[in-house]
Write a protein that binds this DNA or RNA. Structure first.
Lengths: 182, 182
DNA sequence: CCCATTTGAGACACTCGTGTCTCTCCTCTA
DNA sequence: TAGAGGAGAGACACGAGTGTCTCAAATGGG
């Protein structure tokens, strides 16, 4: 039977999210295949990580597409975006810790493109008067990444319910912890 | 001359924050000492990581102390806490990615104690009517960790100014991105 | 100034993960 | 049913990183 490459990648991501230094043998076992087969699919650990990076990037971009982040109110766009990003959060948490991906010449420019779109979303919100202007769009988008990772990790640890993923992130990011008095 | 153990730890943290898989040789070079001396100070990589964990924990606890998080308004306490936590943010970012620290039996219970104090702070804010109650204290404290890491990383990358560290985190965490209408 | 201590540099063996190969077994298809 | 293709299991050598040791040089105190 043919190996489901995508499935292998998802299983690998599931393991690597919580154990970023996992052995190729452990990855193979997590995916339910042998190390030999894993190596037939991905020529080495580096290729596996690159494939995971590509998968994560693709998922993020498709989430951005599906969320129509250029339409309607920026705050609603952020909510839709986070909801669409949820399935990719675990993978994102792993990639976030693979800081070696983001330094050096071979850096994937896809992240820069994605980042530009996120920044543009927050900037749009500012220009529309929805968002405050004393928090830079760059910081807001970076904070969103951080909250996605925190949320994924916290849910994995069982400290918060997975159904609260989207609301936890969006409510905190948009509304903050302080109670509204209006 | 005697090796400044604390200095070595800080240099190591500075390197490991941005390159978590750095070699012991690289760590030694970053600290300006030889690999032999590094090994004399810390018996193996594991011991080094443990020492970094201890240092990070100590710094966090001292920040919690200095911030007097049980006094005054909770929101102000959070601001003081973040300000005190700033020097430890880089180290925290490294420890955050060392997820192996937080699983298994040898887990340092100091983190649980620290976490309890953070959670208590947010709960106090809720009970005082300062914070909204639809975001759990657990999530708020976890989100704070995530924002600390994001901020440290973003500053390291030069995407935001280091002087905005505290305000970026506290304003987002407490006030959120949406502009107040009050 | 001399001696004790400590550091740096290098060599060494060892471990662990990796990449590759072979061989066998299974499954699907003609 | 026979054959082809793919997967699993295991063996193997290789490289990187590690921990340890030795020896020479430097430092600092008495």
């Amino acid at each position: 039977m043919a190996v489901d490459r995508e499935r292998v990648l998802r299983d690998a991501a599931g393991l690597l999210m919580r154990k970023s230094g996992a052995t190729m043998d452990e990855v193979a076992r997590a995916a339910g295949i042998s190390r030999a087969t894993l190596n037939r699919q991905f020529a080495g650990r580096d290729a596996l990580v690159r494939a995971l990076e590509e998968l994560g990037l693709t998922e993020c971009e498709s989430a951005v597409e599906k969320a129509d982040i250029d339409d309607g109110r920026a705050a609603d766009a952020v909510r839709r975006l986070v909801r669409e990003l949820e399935p990719a959060a675990g993978l994102l948490a792993f990639l976030y810790s693979e800081n070696q991906l983001f330094e050096g010449d071979g850096q994937n420019e896809g992240w820069a493109r994605l980042d530009a779109r996120m920044v543009a979303l927050f900037r749009r919100g500012q220009e529309a008067g929805e968002f405050r202007i004393d928090l830079s769009p760059v910081w807001l988008s970076e904070a969103l990444y951080g909250l996605l990772v925190s949320a994924a990790w916290t849910i994995y640890e069982g400290r918060v319910a997975s159904r609260d993923f989207t609301s936890n992130i969006t409510e905190l990011l948009l509304g903050g912890a302080v109670r509204r008095t209006e």
